[in-house]
C-alpha cells in the first residue's frame, strides 16, 4: 500500500491513471478466479452424481465389474438403455406424461391467474382473511388432508348431488381427480402460483384497466385481453415451476393415479422391479445400471423444456416481483 502510494507520487500525473487501472485489473482478476473456483466447486457437487449416473448407465457388464474403470466406460454399451426404454414403456409414457403435464399446467395458469387477479384488483369483504387462507394452503402440506381427500375421490358424488341418481363414482386411477383439483385451484402448489400472480397483477398500472373500462370492455374481457397479455413474465414463471413440479410429482400420482401405468416418473420408480422380474436379473449392479439409464431418459425431456424456457424465464422472474 505504502509502496504504491510512493510510486504514484513519483510518477507524472498522466501516468497515474495507468497504475490505478492496472491495480484495478489485478483486483478484478483475483476476484474472478476466486468466484470461478467456488462456482466450479459447487457445480461439481451438483453435477457429480449426474455424471456418475450417465457413466454407469453407459457401462457394459464387463466395465461394471472392472475395478480399473472409473467414470469413463471402456466398452460403452447401450444395452441398459434398451431395457429401460422397454420396461418403462418409454415412448408411449413420454407422450402421455408430456400431454398430461402441459394440460395440467395450462389449467393451473388459467385458474391461478384468474384467482390472483381477483385478489389483486377487486375489493370485497373478507378479502384479507381469504388471502390468508391461500397462504394456509401453501403452508399445510397436502399429506395432512390426503386421507379424507382420498376417500372423497374414491366415492366421488359431487357434494351429495350425484348420489340422488346413482352410486358414487370411483375417480381414482385416472386423471380426473387431478383435473378437478387443479380446476378448483387446489392443484400442486397452486397457492404459491396464486401468490405470484397476485403480486404481479398488483404491480401493473391501474391505467391499463381504466382505459379498457372506458372503451367499454367488461371485466372478463379486460382480464383476458388486457391484463393477461401484460402478465407474460408471470405466466412463464408459473409455467416453468408448474411443468417441473407436475412432471416430477410421484406422490399425488401414486395416490390418485395408481392405475395409470403411463407416467414417466412413476414408471421410473417401478423400473427396478419391472426389470428384475422381467429379465429374471438377480445382479443388483446391473439392475442399478438400468435404473440409471431410466433416470437419464426421464431427465432429458425436462432439461430440454427448461433450456427452451430459460431464456424467457430469467427476464420473466425479474419482472414478476415475487415480494413477500
Amino acid at each position: 500500500m505504502q509502496f504504491t502510494k510512493n510510486l504514484l507520487e513519483k510518477l507524472p500525473s498522466f501516468r497515474r491513471g495507468y497504475v490505478l487501472r492496472a491495480k484495478k485489473a489485478v483486483k478484478e482478476t483475483i476476484m474472478s478466479i476466486f468466484i470461478f473456483i467456488i462456482l466450479i466447486g459447487i457445480a461439481f457437487v451438483i453435477l457429480s452424481p449426474l455424471l456418475a449416473i450417465v457413466s454407469n448407465s453407459l457401462m457394459s457388464r464387463g466395465d461394471i465389474y472392472n475395478p480399473l474403470v472409473y467414470l469413463i466406460p471402456r466398452n460403452p454399451a447401450s444395452v441398459h438403455y434398451e431395457f429401460a426404454l422397454h420396461y418403462m414403456n418409454y415412448w408411449q409414457a413420454l407422450r402421455f406424461t408430456l400431454g398430461y403435464t402441459f394440460g395440467i399446467t395450462a389449467l393451473q395458469i388459467a385458474v391461478c391467474s384468474l384467482v390472483g387477479y381477483g385478489f389483486a384488483r377487486f375489493r370485497f369483504p373478507g378479502r384479507n382473511i381469504l388471502f390468508g387462507m391461500v397462504i394456509l394452503t401453501i403452508v399445510v402440506p397436502t399429506q395432512t388432508i390426503i386421507i379424507p381427500l382420498y376417500s372423497q375421490f374414491r366415492f366421488f358424488d359431487l357434494f351429495g348431488a350425484l348420489g340422488l341418481f346413482m352410486e358414487p363414482i370411483n375417480l381414482l386411477g385416472r386423471v380426473w381427480s387431478t383435473v378437478i383439483l387443479t380446476t378448483t385451484g387446489q392443484g400442486l402448489r397452486a397457492g404459491l402460483f396464486i401468490f405470484i400472480f397476485r403480486q404481479f397483477f398488483r404491480g401493473l398500472p391501474k391505467e391499463l384497466e381504466e382505459a379498457a373500462v372506458i372503451d367499454g370492455a367488461g371485466p372478463v374481457y379486460t382480464y383476458g385481453r388486457v391484463m393477461l397479455p401484460n402478465a407474460v413474465p408471470a405466466i412463464i414463471t408459473v409455467m416453468l415451476f408448474s411443468i417441473v413440479w407436475q412432471y416430477n410429482d410421484v406422490y399425488f400420482a401414486g395416490v390418485f393415479m395408481s392405475g395409470v401405468r403411463n407416467l414417466l416418473p412413476v414408471n421410473l420408480s417401478g423400473l427396478a422391479t419391472a426389470y428384475h422380474w422381467g429379465e429374471q436379473e438377480m445382479d443388483f449392479n446391473l439392475v442399478n445400471a438400468v435404473v440409471n439409464a431410466g433416470v437419464v431418459l426421464t431427465i432429458i425431456p425436462i432439461i430440454v423444456i427448461y433450456m427452451f424456457l430459460q431464456k424467457f424465464f430469467m427476464e420473466g422472474i425479474e419482472r414478476s416481483g415475487i415480494v413477500g
Binding site: 385478489f119 375489493r123 388432508i145 378448483t184 385451484g185
Partner: peptide, 25 residues
C-alpha cells in the same frame, strides 16, 4: 358490483378451498 366481481373471479378457488381443503382439514 366490484365485490361481486371479485367473488366471481376467486370463485373456482373458493369452491375448491371449501370442498377439498377446508372440509378435509
Amino acid at each position: 358490483r366490484e365485490a361481486m366481481l371479485g367473488y366471481m373471479f376467486i370463485m373456482p378457488w373458493l369452491i375448491g378451498f371449501i370442498v377439498f381443503f377446508l372440509a378435509n382439514y
